[in-house]
Design a binder for these strands. Structure first.
Lengths: 346, 346
DNA sequence: CTGTTAGCGCTTTCAA
DNA sequence: TTGAAAGCGCTAACAG
């Protein structure tokens, strides 16, 4: 084993043809005689030849790699997103370079640089928190197609695909208001993301259109985690004028909120209405009790990949900003009778 | 933009040195004058030079890429595993090629081939169901270091890192027996994996050592999912002599089992003891009510990566089979008073 | 410490 | 249809 590397020359010699013929066969060109092709393929198999992409990439000054960088792979939303991307990227004959930044922009810089060095044809990025247009500028200037997912970055000059977070929050809060709630909290999340901002906007807009004021005491940030949810609801319940319902930044927060409510002997759904964006958990565990605002991560990944491939093919295209759909999935009582239905809200 | 590609020659010229000096700087060699290095680095930044790894890889006949192929990235266990791998691979100056096979061996063949073509230095593989030693043979013969994780493959001749599933099942069933259970079911999972086999072995061994017989009616396979758990428990409850406890193939199954019990107005934990291996969900959502047999996926990824890097450095090493630890995390009553503790079982 | 030279394995004109 | 020859951008001797 570990024999000398087998190259096109070896297989050309063994097949009694020239190496350019072999190259043509490798590329599935139709310019080559059927019999010759068969012969060459047989020899390839026989000698255990493996194609050397480094050489091909060098020669062609490009690679069939697309990169995907996510901010938190341990969040299954992003894992599903990557799977969606992979599916379409794959069937287009590309392979996927996947990197996880863990929300660290330093790490993000490194992985993007590394992908450039590997000559990726395009990049799908779910930016780490705090990423700015300037961080992406060198990449964008290089002319490599980029599509941003989940989190948009203002004025970065690239395509983006985000879900309609404002519409989702709007629908959720309208739903709560229709159920008679008047004190509705917004719990969890960090204020420095566009996602947070959009959800918050939907929340405020819904309150405003109902003539309710969104007292800032009802907006309580926290880590977007289960533990964060617990602290957020605890803080909310210490207010003079307590809320009776909450829209949670994500489902992990919503779970924490439920934990916190139960610790106070309140039953979520019956005594206190809880709605969460289902970024983190739902896709896999389908928590049946929780009303959520949902997006389909794999579907989003597929759309992002399609958009990117289109741009790669087009060479150079105007950036597009696409807003994907979001659904309000009503699965529990939010103050009265139990229901179970879902509707598109955007 | 999209200017001509900047190469080492350009930067050599601009810096007034030769291209091999530039190359040395690029590789962080200590053979180069500090002033020269600074000059070169300045020019590199100035011209926006991007290192071309395809060229370097071609020349050096190797790449700083390690591949990781997982059987189901939507399962957060594997996502966490990949994150663990990434962490150590990263800090060793490698990048990670991640591919998802979705349990399809055809796909697995393709991605492994693709990684070989890209010249990966080593491969971490969590094999798709049904993978056999023969499927890996060409890869192994090529001399590329490989470590198998989670699922071992008999006689494949490569290193492996799996968790001690038998010990985990043994501890879980002993625990149930100590609580007075005599009819203990094994629910969920497909019988064609080594993991299933190992867990089943622990289950049977525990029953045997207690003088109980493991009637095969109590072993009920199903998809390793929440829905699978529901059908499995339903089937179990239709037996003449019903079980009073169940060890579930994984936590998704365990959740389904809880669903099924509740549908019959039985409270999991109080009326029927449930223990699950926490492959799928726990790491992220920490279901507080369920007693589980746990492994730390990120830790496992890190260990696998370390093992692989060791082999890459060593050139050629004897395969090692490592069995990693598993913990029984007791979080709920399994028939009597509520407890909360965890212990290492292997 | 720095420059010269010769390829790595592949693709791609351009002829035959 | 196939063959010959010229590099892609980089590294690795080796000589200065």
């Amino acid at each position: 084993m570990a024999k000398e590397r087998v190259t096109v020359i070896d297989i050309a010699r063994a097949a009694g043809v020239s190496k350019s013929t072999v190259s043509l066969v490798l590329q599935g060109s139709s310019l080559v005689n059927e019999a010759t092709r068969a012969k060459v393929n047989a020899v390839i198999r026989e000698l255990g030849y493996v194609y050397n992409r480094s050489a091909a990439n060098l020669r062609q000054a490009k690679s069939k790699i697309i990169g995907i960088v996510v901010n938190d792979l341990t969040n299954s939303f992003f894992a599903e997103l990557a799977v969606g991307v992979d599916a379409v990227v794959q069937s287009a004959g590309f392979v996927q370079f996947l990197a996880n930044t863990g929300e660290k922009s330093e790490r993000q810089r490194e992985v993007i640089a590394s992908m450039r060095e590997h000559g990726v044809s395009g990049l799908i990025i779910s930016p780490a928190r705090g990423t700015e247009a300037a961080d992406l500028a060198p990449l964008v200037e290089s002319g490599i197609p980029v599509v941003l997912v989940v989190r948009d970055i203002a004025r970065a000059g690239v395509s983006s695909l985000i879900s309609d977070n404002r519409a989702g929050a709007l629908a959720a809060v309208r739903h709560l208001i229709a159920r008679g709630h008047r004190r509705i909290a917004f719990l969890g999340g960090f204020a420095d993301t566009a996602v947070f901002e959009a959800r918050m906007r939907g929340y405020r807009d819904a309150l405003r259109e109902a003539g309710l004021n969104a007292g800032d005491d009802l907006v309580i940030g926290s880590a977007p985690s289960r533990a964060g949810g617990v602290t957020a609801i605890e803080q909310a319940m210490m207010l003079e004028d307590r809320p009776t319902a909450a829209l949670c930044f994500n489902d992990a927060v919503a779970f924490g909120v439920c934990d916190g409510l139960r610790a106070r002997r309140l039953e979520p759904g019956a005594d206190f209405a809880v709605i969460g964006f289902d970024d983190v958990i739902e896709a896999k565990t389908a928590v049946p009790a929780l009303t959520t605002v949902s997006v389909d991560p794999q579907g989003m990944g597929e759309r992002a990949a399609e958009l990117l491939l289109k741009q790669i093919k087009a060479g150079r295209a105007e950036p597009e900003a696409i807003v994907g759909p979001v659904r309000l999935v009503i699965r529990q009582s939010c103050g009265s009778a139990v229901e179970r239905r879902a509707k598109e809200v955007s």
